[in-house]
C-alpha cells in the first residue's frame, strides 16, 4: 500500500522537486550551523550591510552578521513552529470534527457549540496577549523560546479543520460503503478511522499543508507586531520584520528571509498536493 502510494507520489514531479527543496532547507537548518564557522549571534557591526559575496553568500545584515547563517538558524525555529503547531491543530481538529460529524446528536451539538465558542474568541487578541504574558513569566527555560508560541498557535487554530472534517463525516457517513462496513459488523471507531477518515483525507491534507504555512506566517505576523520571538534569536519572521527598515539600504536582508518563507511554504504545499494525489484511491492521471 505504502509502496503504491510512494510510486504515485514519485510521479508527481513538482511534489518530488519540492520534497528535494524541503530536504535541502531542513538539512541546511540542521547541519549548517554545526559546520559553517559564522556565529549567528556575534555582531561584527563594522561589517554591516555587505552585499552578497563569496565570504557571505547572502550578504550581511545591519549588525554585520552572516545572513545565510541567520537564515539557517532562524529556519530551525520557524520550521519547528510550523510543523509542531500544525500537528497540534490538525489532531485536535480531526478528533473534534470526526466525533461531531459521526455521532451527531448532543455530542455534535456540544462540540460545535464549543467550536463556536473557540471561533468567537478573538484569536489575534489572545495570541498577542498570551505572547505578552508568557514573556513576563520569569521562566528563562521557556520564555523567549518557541514552545509557548507553538502551543498558542496550535491551540487556537483547530476550529476550521474541525468544521471541515465534520462536514466530510456528515456527507460520508450516509455513503454505501459505510453501510456495507456496518453490515459487515464493523465497530464505530473502526468505521470512523478506517473507512470514513481515509475518504476524508484529501481535504484534511489540504488543510494541514495550509496550516504549516499558516503557522509560519502567524509567527511572522506576531513578530511584525513586536510580539513574536524576540531578537537576537532569529526566525524567518522576525528577520523580515527587522529588515523592514533596511529595504532600501540592504534589500538582500529583506529579500532572502522572505524568499525562504516563500520557498518553504510553496514546497510544503506542493508536497501536500502530491500526497493528495497519492492518497486518493480514485486518482486517475
Amino acid at each position: 500500500m505504502l509502496a503504491l502510494m510512494w510510486r504515485r507520489f514519485t510521479k508527481h514531479k513538482p511534489a518530488m522537486l519540492s520534497l528535494l527543496i524541503l530536504a535541502i532547507i531542513v538539512i541546511g537548518c540542521v547541519l549548517a550551523p554545526l559546520v559553517v564557522g559564522y556565529d549567528p549571534y556575534n555582531a561584527p557591526v563594522e561589517l554591516r550591510r555587505q552585499p552578497p559575496s563569496l565570504a557571505h553568500l547572502f550578504g550581511t545584515d545591519e549588525l554585520g552578521r552572516d545572513l545565510l547563517m541567520r537564515i539557517w538558524v532562524g529556519g530551525r525555529v520557524s520550521l519547528v513552529i510550523g510543523v509542531a503547531a500544525m500537528v497540534i491543530s490538525i489532531s485536535i481538529g480531526t478528533l473534534v470534527g470526526a466525533l461531531a460529524g459521526f455521532y451527531g446528536g448532543w455530542l455534535d451539538n456540544g462540540l460545535m457549540r464549543f467550536n463556536d465558542f473557540m471561533l468567537a474568541l478573538p484569536h489575534l487578541f489572545i495570541l498577542l496577549l498570551a505572547a505578552q504574558l508568557l514573556r513576563t513569566l520569569n521562566v528563562p527555560e521557556i520564555s523567549g523560546g518557541p514552545l509557548p508560541i507553538i502551543v498558542i498557535i496550535g491551540a487556537l487554530s483547530w476550529m476550521g479543520a474541525a468544521r471541515l472534517v465534520r462536514g466530510q463525516f456528515l456527507s460520508l457517513k450516509a455513503k454505501e460503503f459505510v453501510e456495507a462496513a456496518r453490515v459487515a459488523g464493523a465497530q464505530n471507531h473502526r468505521i470512523m478511522w478506517r473507512h470514513i477518515l481515509p475518504n476524508a483525507a484529501s481535504p484534511i491534507i489540504v488543510a494541514a499543508t495550509l496550516r504549516v504555512g499558516n503557522a509560519i506566517m502567524t509567527e511572522s505576523t506576531l513578530s511584525f507586531l513586536g510580539f513574536g520571538i524576540q531578537p537576537p534569536m532569529p526566525t524567518w519572521g522576525n528577520m523580515l520584520k527587522n529588515a523592514q527598515s533596511q529595504m532600501t539600504l540592504a534589500p538582500w536582508v529583506a529579500i532572502f528571509p522572505g524568499l525562504f518563507i516563500f520557498a518553504a511554504v510553496v514546497a510544503i504545499n506542493y508536497v501536500g498536493d502530491g500526497l493528495r494525489d497519492a492518497l486518493d484511491p480514485q486518482h486517475v492521471e
Binding site: 511584525f224 522572505g258 516563500f262 510553496v266
Partner: peptide, 22 residues
C-alpha cells in the same frame, strides 16, 4: 493558477505590501 494561489498564500502580507509601496 495553482502557482499563483501558492504564491499569494506564501507571501507574508506585510512584506508584499512593503514591496508594492517601494
Amino acid at each position: 493558477m495553482t502557482t499563483l494561489a501558492f504564491m499569494g498564500y506564501s507571501i507574508p502580507v506585510f512584506w508584499f505590501g512593503l514591496v508594492l509601496i517601494i
